[in-house]
Every structure is written in C-alpha cells, then in structure tokens.
C-alpha cells in the first residue's frame, strides 16, 4: 500500500502538471474575489473563510477527475485490483496520494492567501487546522464520485453534480468553525464534528470506492 502511494507520488512529481494546476486554480480563485466584491477590508474579512473553503473544495474537485482515470485507461487499475492488496487498500492508497499532492500544498498556501484577504493573523492556526480536517474529507468523498463515474460519458459534468451536494456538510461545519473563531467563540464543537465525519468517511468511503472500482471492471 505504501508502495502504491509512493508510486503515485512519483508519477505526479514526474509530470507535476495536475498538482500545480489545482494549486494555481486555488490561488487564482481566491485572488479573483477582491475584484468581484471590492477591496473593503471588513467585507473581505467576513467572507474570507467561505472563499477559502469553496476555493479549496473546487480545487479538490478539479483534480479529482484524473484520480482513477489514468490508471483505468492504461489498465494498471485492473492489475491493482487483481493484486493481493484488497480493493479497499487500493482506494485508501489512491486517496492518500491525492491528498498529499493536492491537499497538503493547499494547507501551506492557504495562510498566505488568508492574509491577503485580511484575516486576522491569530486565526491562521485555526484555518490550517480546519483545512487539515476538511481536505482529506474532500478527497475521500470526491474519490467516491470519481470511482463511480469511471468510464461514464460526460464524466466531467457528472462528477460535480454527484459530489458537490455531498460536500455540503463539510463546507457547513468547516465554515462554522472558522466563523466561530472569527467572532471569538470556541470552534471546538465544529472541529470535533468535522473530525467525527472524517473518521466515519475513512471507514465508509473506501468501501464505496472499492465497490465502485470493482463495478467498473466487471
């Protein structure tokens, strides 16, 4: 399983395009907002959590379509499913690689962008913590959609339609936690709920991904 993660990471490092594209998308998406809503600091501070979260969500979605597609087309996914590693393990490894490639760079860039959006500096720790819980959830849920749409016609349109409604709870709790922090309340309950969802998704999402991958190969 670790070998599979490393293999995916090597592939990404060699090509490099997908990961940097998602990151660039995230940065540009956030930078566009001050042009859209105007540069008043109060408004920017107010909308900063939502903007960062939605940009992160869209960036995760953008890179998601390619998650299984390459392996599916060149047949290596079939080999992986035939290998002694159970399909759930393949699913976890692919999701972990996706998160390391797209989620972690996001965590590093997000505080800088938050400063551009006039978020108070003492909230940056909370922002990184929330994103650290939210981005793996986005990868897990998105991977279910990516596995389900393997080999579908118009999968590029289909994937957001399936995945975005399922992202709503993540968005709500992450935004509520950040808002609570901004207004001086404790973000703890929201983060705990987010953590609980992450634990649940860690168990259930690989099952669904594995079932979908097997279905794609029957």
């Amino acid at each position: 399983m670790l070998r599979l993660i490393l293999r995916d990471l090597r592939l990404v490092l060699r090509q490099g395009s997908d990961a940097t594209a998602a990151l660039m998308f995230f940065v540009l998406c956030v930078v566009l907002f001050p042009f859209g809503v105007g540069p008043e600091p109060n408004i920017l501070t107010r909308i900063a959590p939502g903007v960062l979260l939605i940009a992160a969500l869209l960036a995760a979605l953008l890179s998601m379509e390619r998650l299984f597609q390459g392996d599916f087309e060149d047949g290596s996914l079939e080999l992986l499913l035939l290998s002694p590693l159970p399909a759930e393990g393949v699913a976890i490894a692919k999701v972990a690689a996706h998160w390391l490639v797209t989620g972690v760079p996001l965590l590093i860039v997000a505080p800088l962008l938050a400063l551009l959006l006039r978020m108070p500096a003492d909230q940056l720790g909370l922002l990184v913590g929330t994103l650290a819980l939210a981005t793996p959830l986005l990868s897990l849920i998105g991977a279910v959609g990516a596995a389900l749409t393997l080999g579908a016609r118009r999968s590029g349109v289909l994937l957001p339609l399936l995945v975005l409604p399922l992202y709503i709870p993540v968005l709500i709790f992450a935004a509520a936690g950040l808002d609570a922090g901004l207004s001086g309340l404790s973000p703890r309950p929201h983060l705990l709920l987010l953590g609980g969802m992450l634990c649940g998704a860690l168990v259930l999402a690989p099952l669904a991904i594995a079932a979908a991958l097997r279905a794609a190969h029957e």
Partner: peptide
C-alpha cells in the same frame, strides 16, 4: 440534487448494468 445525480449517473454508461450498479452505490452513499 441527489435525485438528479442518480438519474444522470445511471444514464451515463453505455452498459446499463454498469450504470445501475454505480447508481446503487450512489444511492447508498
């Protein structure tokens, strides 16, 4: 949106059996 997603997913495959299976997984998720 879940209904729409299910209907779109089931119809998106050339092989109906595959679409049904994917749709079933989506319904459970």
């Amino acid at each position: 949106f879940l209904y729409l997603g299910y209907m779109a997913l089931v119809d998106a495959f050339d092989d109906p059996a595959r679409g049904n299976k994917a749709g079933n997984i989506l319904l459970l998720v």
